[in-house]
Amino acid sequence: MKKSLKYLLLVPGIVMLVVFLVMPLLSTIMPTVFDQGFSLKAYIDFFKDPYYVQIFMRTLRVSLIAAIVCIILGVPTSYFISRCHPKWRGLLMAISIFPMLTNSVIRAFAWINILGKNGVINTILMNLHIIDEPITMLYTEFSVLIGTIYLFLPLMIITLVGVMENIDNDMMEAAESLGANRLTAFFKVVLPLSLPGIIVGSVLVFTGALSAYTTPSLLGGTKNMVMATLINQKSTVLGDWTGASVIALIMIITTIVVMKVLNYIAAKLDKRGESNA
């Protein structure tokens, strides 16, 4: 095989990525660290400002809680799907996939209908005379969280089903024959074996939530900003390009750190022999 060919095939992609991803990123980020010599002042300023720190922490908090809730809701449901008769499994998978293919604007809009002042929950509670005044649920951190969970739960379920389907039923039966009831067998066998899937799912949910824009923008309002909405506000509303670029780099680094940390934990926990590395 001529050497030139394989590089020829790769060149268009590499050029496109360098010119339209790497260069734009560098050209936006460079000014934030080079201000008459190397300086991290812009970043230090960001983390000194309580307003920004609050937004940064909110972003992390929402992403973390969303990931945990997705695990709690997703693990049993995925286990249920993976043990279903294949006929039903296909249908349940389709049901899980459908929201994922639906536009995130629509999915956020669904919760505006439910949580809003005149939304479904308030209407029901008022009609039942449980409350007299509508409760404020929309435009709170709670609504952002619900919307984020709603956005990413299908992703978690689909990832987990993929892993759980491959756990041989013999494994469960072996555990049962050794004296484990179904719950014990689930915790001692299925859960540890699903760990790689749980980690992959968590990475997807966590990093997805970190950069989600639509949901916090529609359900959080201006009071509950996250990093993704902040970058938009900084640049298009305030015209603070350097400030926006600072946030951009912080988002990228946070994403990478989260990925690395979770993958490190996965490698630590998933010890089934060196050959599995």
């Binding site: 013999d170 072996a174 066998v189």
Partner: peptide, 10 residues
């Protein structure tokens, strides 16, 4: 004892 052995890989 199972045909696949069903040893717990973890």
């Amino acid at each position: 004892v199972f045909q696949s052995y069903a040893l717990f890989p973890h």
